[in-house]
Deep mutational scan, measured.
Amino acid sequence: EINVTSHGEEQAKHWIELAKRMNLDVEVEIHGDKIIITIK
């Protein structure tokens, strides 16, 4: 399980695309200006 804290939408999209390509599950939480991505 990987937790990524992203401070930008572009960076977040990059991680989500990467996870989808690798067929991994992704959870995205938004806390103000921080985007927390959990890849399982």
Rank of each mutant, 00 (worst) to 15 (best):
D25V: 14
N23T: 13
A12I: 13
A12T: 08
I16H: 03
V4N: 04
E17D: 04
T38K: 09
T38S: 04
V26P: 01
L18W: 15
K13P: 05
I39T: 01
G32L: 13
D33A: 06
I16N: 02
L18Y: 13
G8F: 15
N3V: 15
Q11M: 09
K13N: 07
D25K: 14
K34H: 11
A19F: 15
T38M: 03
R21F: 14
L18Q: 04
E1H: 10
V28K: 00
H14G: 04
E9M: 13
I16A: 04
I35R: 00
D33N: 10
I30F: 10
D25L: 14
T38F: 05
I35Q: 01
A19V: 14
W15R: 04
E9N: 10
H14D: 07
L24A: 02
E29K: 09
E1L: 11
I2M: 04
E1M: 10
W15G: 03
D33K: 02
E29W: 13
E10Y: 11
G32F: 12
A19T: 05
K20A: 08
D25C: 15
E17K: 09
I39S: 01
I37M: 02
K34M: 12
Q11S: 09
I2E: 03
I39Y: 01
E29D: 02
H7M: 11
H14F: 14
W15N: 06
I30E: 01
E9W: 15
H7V: 11
E9P: 11
I30S: 01
E27F: 10
L24K: 01
N23E: 10
D33T: 06
E29M: 12
H7D: 07
D33G: 03
G8T: 13
S6C: 15
E1W: 13
V4D: 04
V26W: 06
N3R: 11
W15S: 07
M22Y: 13
I39G: 00
I39F: 05
E27H: 11
V26E: 00
V26S: 01
K20M: 15
S6H: 09
K34L: 11
G32M: 09
I36Q: 02
K40S: 03
E29L: 10
N3L: 12
E1I: 12
R21S: 10
T5Q: 06
G32W: 14
G8E: 07
M22N: 06
T5K: 02
H7W: 15
I39A: 01
L24Q: 01
L24Y: 07
E1N: 06
I35E: 00
H14S: 08
N23G: 14
I39M: 02
V4K: 06
L24V: 04
E9Q: 06
A12P: 05
K20W: 15
H7R: 07
I37E: 00
A19E: 12
H14N: 05
G32K: 06
Q11P: 04
H31L: 09
E29T: 12
H7L: 10
H31T: 11
A12K: 07
D25S: 14
L24N: 01
E27W: 11
K34G: 04
W15D: 08
I35K: 00
D33I: 12
E17I: 12
I2H: 05
I16M: 05
S6R: 02
K40R: 08
L18E: 08
Q11N: 05
I30R: 05
V26F: 10
A12C: 15
